[in-house]
Each structure stands twice: as structure tokens, then as C-alpha cells.
Amino acid sequence: MKRSRFPFVATTLILVFLYLPILVLFAQSFNDARFGGSWNGFTLKWYKLLFEHRGVITATENTLIVAVTATLLSTVLGTLAAWALHRFQSRMQKVHQVLIYGPLVVPDILMGISLLLLFVNLSVPLGLGTVIVAHSTFGLSYVAFVVLGRLQEFDHSLLDAARDLGAGSWTTLWRVLLPLLWPGIAAGALLAFTLSLDDFVITFFVAGPGSSTLPVQVYGMMKHGQPALINALSVLFMSATFGIVLASQFLLRKRYD
């Protein structure tokens, strides 16, 4: 039976649709013209200007501080949560599960406003701290989700085997459980890290003066017209994210069977 060519054509067109704007962005970042109407020649001046931009530099620092701290917090909490969800089947875990899945389902803007209301109510000053807390909250859900997925294919007789061969709980944890789970934990951590880098809406609500992250900075620049600079920034930002994603893809694919 001859297969229809329609799915192939559709997929190709959709890939063009997905990549066209990104390619335009790449090209624009090297275009000497301020807007995309004409090609005035190749330039690196936007990149040069970018590295001299105070706001961008501060925002980059903030972004990294937030992403690293939130990733650490959410990886520890998310991994513990995944283990608890996997290991126990009590009523408490049902509540636990609903709480874990909540942040995955709720739209960003609801999470942003609800956290803002909480911080205002408790008179917590908005700043890097509130951004970190917000990012850890959705980050831990994603980590738990990824690690739980890995745990579901984990062979529990391996833990029995380790104990049977004389290993106590601690040795089993370090020699068997963590070595086998770490690709999943690392992939979860990378996901939390990229999502933290990426988040705009929630950060926009809970960031205070001086705690802008890069996406918030980009938003400001988009509103107050410096498009050529954003092109260059986007290209750098995107390259960094793609690097992380490729690394996590590699980790997730690493399996022993």
C-alpha cells in the first residue's frame, strides 16, 4: 500500500513555520539596519552594544543567581517528593500528588498573581528572594515529575539484591539507588534550570526593583524599543538554552538496557 505523502509535506511545512522566525532573528542580529526592512551589511555592533549595557549585565547576574539557587532547592525537594510518591501509597501521598501536579497545570499568570498576593499579604518585600521561592515552587514539580518517570522503570529487586549482598540503607543509597537515578535527577534539574531561565510571567509579578531577570529585562527593552539589541541578546540566550537542552537530551537517553 502506497503511503500518503500528506503527513510528510505537513511536517515539513510545520518545521518551516517553527524555524522561520528564529532564522529571521539570527539574520537580523547581524544586520546593520535598525529594522528588518533592508539588509545594510554584516555587523557585530549590536553584540558589542549588548555587552556594554548595564541593565543586561545585572539582569544576567540575577538570572543566574535565581536559576542556580532555585534549581538546587527544587532538585532536592522534587527528588524527595518523587521518592515519597513512588514508595508510599497512603492517603497523604494522594494529597501530596495533587499538590505536586497543581503548579504544572495552573497558568503562569495565576501562579504569579497568587504569589504576589501572598507576599503582599505577608508584607514580604519583593526581590531576588521572592523570585527564587517562586521558581523553586514550579521547579520542584517538574523535577518530581521527571524523577517519578524514571522511578517507574526502576527495578526494585535491585535494592533487595543490594541488601541481600550485605549493603545497609546508606550503602544501598550511594552505590545503587543514586548511581541509577542520577540521570533522571540531572535531567530534572536541567529542566528546572531552563524553565527558571525562561520564566517571564511569574517573575514579572514577584520581582521587585533591582531584581529583574533577563526575560523581564527583554520585556522592558521590547516595550521601550531597542529591537536590534534584543536580536543579539536573543541569539545568545537561545544558544545557551539549546546547549542545555541538548545536554539534557543526552542524559535522558542514557539507559542501561
Binding site: S157, D160, L165
Partner: peptide, 20 residues
């Protein structure tokens, strides 16, 4: 006695070899 303290060892049904 817990399993790690017994001089008894097991050959598991699906081998349970450590894949790493």
C-alpha cells in the same frame, strides 16, 4: 536479622544485576 546481616544470599528471579 535484616537481610544484610544474614549469611544467606539470593539469586533473584529476574537476575537483579546492577545495570551500572
Amino acid at each position: 536479622l535484616p537481610p544484610d546481616k544474614r549469611k544467606i544470599n539470593t539469586v533473584f528471579q529476574n537476575y537483579a544485576l546492577f545495570p551500572h
